[in-house]
Design a protein around this nucleic acid. Structure first.
Lengths: 200, 200
DNA sequence: TTCGAAGTGGTACTCAGTACCATAACGGAC
DNA sequence: GTCCGTTATGGTACTGAGTACCACTTCGAA
């Protein structure tokens, strides 16, 4: 009966999800203990009680496991961004993007512990930072794609999301690892951006 | 006599330079033939007539050889940027950065063949693109550091170079691989940036 | 219960990157 | 030129990521 009411996914899927979760949990435990570089995929697989092969069936490479949660979140962000109403002028595009970026920033720092841990992991491992940049870049490109689909012309469609990223990086630098200060710093960065004028 | 007049570096250094050049040449030949992924370090070493070990003495990893020239150029850029006169306002900082970015952009696309080949290589290999982004980021951070050293306060010191990067990426997207169109597109991106106003 | 499909994990491989070391080449001294 | 300390070289051997392959198990639907 309960199984008829709640649409619970088939056993196959639940098992897969459990394996995935175990791998992620094992990986983060080990990374916290020894650091990313000193943990082998075999270590993770062993603690997660799966085969080494299985690890690679769930994650393309060792780095991906670090971003396993981010991916779903970003997909959600892109979907929500697509649902925003179209805007007419570049200024409105910037305003809308700014607001949206602030929401993302707040969500991203909502779990403060998690945010700090994640950022520390990236700081300690350049390869991970590279990968994170790629993710950000993909997010920004997806936003540009959304804007184009809603009629925003170039170069605004590309430029404005890139500006948002520039503001985020600025905020990230100014606020450091403080998850509370970050949204405010992002807002401030946008203020400084819009305060710039075409000197001469 | 000639050896007394021209200050030619000791044999050791010249040999090292030759080995380096051979490795780079061999690597690019092979990448052009088979693509980055299908060339092993052993292949490169063999064609360059050096040991595999020697390759890693000159380059930290396989990717670094792709950026071997860029590194020296970027160092030069940073030095020249440091030598720029200090400016007082954020608007002036933006204007100076804009001008500087345009110069870099022109230099970067001066050798059109090379530029196109390099960009194609990056497009075909995400890992290389990641690394390139790291390089750009480092350049931007160095510029921020220079600005700070010359008294530019935060967040301008961080924001403005990041904005320049945002404009570059926009230009790169709009102009595609066309090295001639790129500087103009960059200039246009800056125009659009400065045309934005604090709506509402 | 049975059968096809899909997931699992073991074996074995390639290749990047590192450590180590014996040997060769250099450069300054005489 | 000869000698010697220093440094570069490249060979051997190792670890670990990532891939290919495959026999075996488990699931799900009939």
């Amino acid at each position: 009966m309960l199984s008829r009411m709640s649409i619970r996914p088939p056993l196959r899927q639940r098992k897969a999800q459990r394996a995935r979760d175990q791998i992620v949990a094992a990986a983060f435990e080990l990374f916290a203990e020894r650091g990313f570089a000193d943990v082998t995929v075999a270590d993770i697989a062993e603690r997660a009680e799966v085969g080494r092969t299985t690890f690679f069936r769930y994650f393309g490479d060792k780095q991906e496991v670090v971003f396993s949660e981010e991916q779903a979140i970003m997909d959600d962000w892109v979907t929500r961004h697509r649902a925003l109403p179209p805007v007419a002028t570049p200024d409105d595009t910037l305003a809308q993007t700014r607001e949206f970026a602030l929401v993302l920033c707040r969500e991203m720092t909502a779990d403060r512990e998690h945010f700090v841990q994640h950022e520390r992991l990236l700081e300690a491992n350049p390869e991970l930072n590279d990968r994170a940049m790629r993710k950000y870049q993909r997010l920004v490109e997806a936003m540009s794609e959304n804007l184009r689909a809603k009629g925003t012309p170039e170069p605004t469609a590309t430029l404005v999301p890139q500006l948002a990223l520039a503001c985020y990086r600025t905020a990230r630098r100014v606020a450091g690892l403080d998850p509370v200060a970050l949204p405010a710093a992002l807002d401030a960065a946008f203020d400084h951006l819009t305060a710039l004028s075409p000197t001469r």
